[in-house]
Amino acid sequence: MDGAIVLDKPAGITSHSAVLAARRLLSESRIGHLGTLDPMASGVLVLLVGRATRLARFYRDREKTYEGTIRFGFSTTTYDGDGTPTSLEQLFHPEESAIRSLFQEFLGTHLQEPPPFSAKKVSGVPSYRLARKGKAVRLAAVPVVIRELELLAVEGPLVRFRARVSAGTYIRSLAHEFGQRMGSGAHLAQLRRTAAGEFAESSAVSLDQLEDQIRQGAPPLIPLESLLAEFPAIPLAPAAAARATHGHDVEVECNAERVRLLDESGHLAAIAERVAGYRFHPVVVVNSGSGAD
């Protein structure tokens, strides 16, 4: 069983728990996800299944889209509603015009400090483990890109929004920064990922739906051949396909830097990168008959 599944992760469980559930339901140990969702968040969690896990490297820089709610009035240790308050609660109802101006300031590229409670590692140790022990954690700021910030509603201390951001952006940190800028403190109260790259919530299935479809013999797998559609698909003759699946260079008349090489049956054989001219080298071999990767 090989391909991708767009899972609708429920709030309240970790991404790892969702992967474990999918492994159990599919009876497949080779399952990984493309980008962690915090336990409090719901929405699109893309799972790569079987040989599709070999393609994960090509999805690292996919942008993400979210909808959520920020609660102004106090900050928390985790920058979300699961943490302990770190400031006294104050009655603060932001003006819509002030929030729109604030959102405008954050558009584009800027340095963002990840939350202390995150999977980012400090000397090989996840920062959340250090934070849980009460140790001071200060993570290096990294460049992120906020491509869209849309204000959906302001209801008292609650601000609903939609955001489209680069990979690696922490929406919790955004909420925390907003609270600092407004002088009120703030935290992320609710979050839903609506898209991860080309994978949207319209294609997502819940764990219950996944179980039902597996019982019906029709798991909602996106086939290998439909993944990474931005790379041109190049059908190969049998001899060339055999070369590619053994990790050898092939000649392909294509101007792209990366291509999907298909065997004579139309199945994905490999992802190849240009070496020189029309010569391409397989960097990931998907064909199960080869141990190359």
Rank of each mutant, 00 (worst) to 15 (best):
T109V: 14
P238Q: 05
V142G: 01
L149Q: 08
E225M: 01
S127L: 08
A175C: 07
E225D: 05
R23K: 14
G134T: 00
T76H: 04
V205H: 15
Q190I: 02
V159W: 09
L47R: 13
P94V: 07
V250K: 04
V250D: 05
S15A: 06
G3N: 03
A276N: 02
T65P: 05
G289E: 13
Q180W: 00
K64Q: 11
A244S: 14
V125K: 13
R30E: 15
K133M: 00
G35Y: 03
V250R: 04
F106I: 07
K133A: 02
A240C: 06
R258D: 01
G277H: 01
L261I: 08
P116C: 02
H248F: 11
S29F: 10
M40Y: 11
S29K: 15
G156C: 03
D61T: 15
T76R: 05
H187W: 08
F74R: 13
G156L: 03
R181K: 09
D208S: 15
T14Y: 01
I271M: 00
L130H: 09
Y170H: 14
L37V: 04
E230C: 02
D208H: 12
A136D: 10
A167C: 14
E67M: 12
A292C: 08
Y128T: 10
L139P: 13
E113W: 04
V165F: 14
M1P: 06
A233S: 12
